[in-house]
Design a protein around this nucleic acid. Sequence first.
DNA 1: TGCCACTTTACGGTTTTCCGTAAAAAACAG
DNA 2: CTGTTTTTTACGGAAAACCGTAAAGTGGCA
Lengths: 221, 221
Amino acid sequence: MIQKILIAEDYETVNLSIQKTLEELHISSPDYVYYCDDALLRIEKALQANASYDLLITDLHFEEDHRQQKISGGEALIAAARNIQPDLKILVFSATGKPATIEALFQKEDIDGYVYKGRNDARELKLALEQIAANRRYFPQQFVQQQKQKNTYELDEFDITILSLMADGKRQQEISAYLKKNNIKPSGLSSIEKRLNTIKDALDCSTNEQLIAHCVKMRII
Amino acid sequence: MIQKILIAEDYETVNLSIQKTLEELHISSPDYVYYCDDALLRIEKALQANASYDLLITDLHFEEDHRQQKISGGEALIAAARNIQPDLKILVFSATGKPATIEALFQKEDIDGYVYKGRNDARELKLALEQIAANRRYFPQQFVQQQKQKNTYELDEFDITILSLMADGKRQQEISAYLKKNNIKPSGLSSIEKRLNTIKDALDCSTNEQLIAHCVKMRII
DNA sequence: TGCCACTTTACGGTTTTCCGTAAAAAACAG
DNA sequence: CTGTTTTTTACGGAAAACCGTAAAGTGGCA
């Protein structure tokens, strides 16, 4: 049975609405935080007090503000939480997840549910909570559909580095020099060109400009 | 005094949380809808029944689904609502607004407030409601900041066209051809080059990629 | 060690972009 | 209408990006 719940969600209204949904399910008042670091602290303290949480409901994306955070976002929070409390149930509630990200969360982090923010998200949230309470996993419908049409080329760290430098105004030669200076393995100009071609092909972009626009929009960089 | 409120917001959780925020302000239970068409219908009926709404709280972006809608989004809804009830107060609650869009809403549609969805959005929502109840307008802080730091060079429609086409994968020659085809005045390749240089200079960008990244981040395009 | 598969790099030729200059066109005043 | 100013376009050389291919390097594996 799920009794003790922690909500990590920086959007105040969303945070409130999750609480309201829980109320309707007659789940006793959950704890809630607006920052990832606070979430982990709560989980740690609860463990030490021998009153650990049953469920963590968390967003993936958190806006940055004046408060410096050690944990950068939902994914890092999930990993950290799993590390200190392996039996914690985790429900991700987010609008931004890419199929590949969701898949990775289910496989690697063994999360228990994923709910897309959307028109009927409160109802979905209830369904997910019921499923999780019954020790079942909850996959969103959208996920099943998107599974089929996945042309998802997952960008690795190297790709992100190149794209970030490029979005930062660096020319390809400068990127090559930067990679050499930082001892990152493929650093030749040709490798950068080749990689960019691969990415553009995968993401169906014809120019660098379009690629950068796409990545910024998708919050890849 | 604000008594009768209509909420148009397709995200169920957000819709709920607005209701909760209104509860805390001791405002009697508002009406709420998930579709723009429904919103306009409600406003029309209330007018005919001589019990018109005092305030419309609406999102800008609505997800499309199986239900075909005449009104495409928040902006269209606002225009339509203004048309049939000029004295209706309007509060926009959205995460997606570009500065130019917000400015246009305040100037052309004469909206009464704009609140960004974000970390402290519930508190901002309360502030905005208080301001509007006092017949004052509520501008978001982010907007004021962005107003200040906006570089002397204001991008015009021509600039936006070029940047949008470029972010769409078009080459400069293709952009030139496009402009010619659509009878947009400066269409020469040189003019495009020159304009891009001016923009890059004004926004302190060294490459097209950096420029596009900046514009997408700043929601200019 | 030597062979093989694979990755990375180097190097030309082509296309695109960049940048300066000058000609052409348009806008404007007298 | 003429002369001036401003805007737009055209052009050519330099730099950067693009693209294919070949050489050099890397890591298994017998």
